[in-house]
């Protein structure tokens, strides 16, 4: 065999890498048709939300007085227009982007707080763990929707605040999951080894615990994003969501539901978009869980 040939390189690499847990998981995930289809759908959604607004000939807040309440496929409006003659497609794409962004950012906020809180509590254990988890239990028993509403009322309806408020509510479960996982990790040999090598607790958490939490955390993240999107739409329905003329899927559905007898398309398209997006996230989450679940091997 000629040194450096592609075959040899591949062979060598395989020999070194072996089949990791992640490879296995990926293969299982790829066999899950619903999950794969959902990933494709989601990829399309994200692309549309990012690129779409540049392709549609209308801006999401352009008022066209002559085009009020046009039905789909008329006057160059693929999905029709609303009461102000704004193009629904443009608004839908903008709204999808906002909803996805809220989902991702709020979930990241919850991820950050939850992972730090849970891993510290789980790893250090003892009294501190008890106190930290008591705090989580306490927060669990608060009527959270009330606090989100209070936050909105207190600080005004600001899109960043929506991110923050929802994220701050979602981190509790994350911290519980992370703590449970950390507890089971911390007695493993490789952690012992790291400790023996003289690494500090902080270093061990950052370098060894957190990376190994990835599996369950990824699953939870994919399930949190749709929960956040629903939560935002709920706030929108109560009139506490994003500020117009900006749109989110929630505000579009809320206004669409008002006009549904006269302009059903204003309800149908945003609802469909929302349902498809949420289902995609859910199927991916389920698929990931199945793929990563060792019980199922």
């Amino acid at each position: 065999m000629i040194p450096g040939s592609p075959q040899r390189k591949a062979l060598l690499e395989n020999a070194v890498k072996g089949r990791s847990l992640w490879d296995d998981a990926r293969r299982r995930l790829m066999r899950n048709r619903a999950a794969v289809a959902s990933m494709v759908v989601l990829a399309v959604m994200v692309t549309l939300a990012v690129v779409g607004p540049f392709l549609v000939p209308f801006h999401y807040d352009t008022v066209t007085k002559t085009d009020v309440w046009m039905s789909p496929m008329t006057g160059g409006h693929l999905l029709g227009t609303d009461s102000l003659g704004r193009d629904l497609l443009a608004r839908l794409l903008a709204g999808l982007g906002v909803s996805l962004a809220i989902g991702v950012v709020a979930t990241s906020v919850s991820l950050l707080i939850g992972v730090v809180w849970g891993s510290v509590a789980g790893y250090l254990g003892g009294r501190l763990d008890e106190v930290m988890m008591r705090v989580v239990d306490t927060l669990y028993s608060l009527p959270f929707i009330f606090f989100v509403i209070l936050l909105m009322v207190t600080f005004g309806r600001n899109i960043f605040l929506i991110f923050l408020a929802i994220g701050a509510v979602e981190w509790l479960t994350m911290s519980r999951i992370v703590r449970g996982q950390t507890l089971s990790l911390k007695d493993k040999e490789f952690i012992e080894a790291a400790r023996a090598a003289g690494l500090s607790s902080g270093q061990i958490i950052a370098r060894h615990i957190v990376p190994n939490l990835l599996g369950p955390v990824v699953v939870y993240v994919t399930l949190t994003i749709p929960a956040v999107i629903i939560a935002e739409s709920f706030l929108s329905f109560l009139g506490l969501g994003v500020q117009p003329p900006m749109a989110s899927l929630g505000t579009l559905i809320a206004t669409g539901a008002q006009d549904m007898e006269m302009a059903p398309w204003l309800l149908i398209f945003p609802s469909l978009t929302m349902i498809v997006t949420l289902m995609a996230f859910n199927f991916i989450g389920d698929g990931l869980r199945d793929a990563l679940d060792p019980k199922d091997r």
Binding site: P226, I230, S233, F234, F237, G250, I253, A254, A257, M260, L267, S271, M274, I275, L278, M279, N282, F283
Partner: peptide
Amino acid sequence: ILGVCIPTFVTAP
């Protein structure tokens, strides 16, 4: 899955 994905304010009306 549908039950979780459709907001109540859509199902209600």
